[in-house]
Amino acid sequence: MTDSHQIRVQIPFHLQTLAHCDKEVGLQVQGRVSVLSIVRALEKRYPMLAGTIIDHHSGKRQPKVRFYADGEDVSLQALDSALPEVIRLGEQPLMIIGAISGG
């Protein structure tokens, strides 16, 4: 039997407007809770986000997008690395943010 986890994820403003959703979204994730599994669950709920966080072509994180979990920047970890328990238990959201640019 595959574990099912009710997790939370926060997405940046421009993706909220694209998906017509709130900043924070609750999702059901099966199996290992990782950036990859959360993004895939997010894309399944909001197909218009496909490719905006993990690039269609490279399968890698969009260069100016970053991921934060439990106060740590996990952007450079493998996308399928297990996330901290507070994310898995839904106590804190995975934060997906666009890197700040400009002055």
Binding site: R40, E43, K44, P47, M48, L49, A50, G51, H56, H57
Partner: peptide
């Protein structure tokens, strides 16, 4: 349908491969 047979999002219109 917004997903393909495998349940993955389509989003083809944004794919330039």
């Amino acid at each position: 349908p917004v997903t393909d047979e495998q349940g993955m999002p389509k989003g083809e219109s944004n794919k330039f491969v």
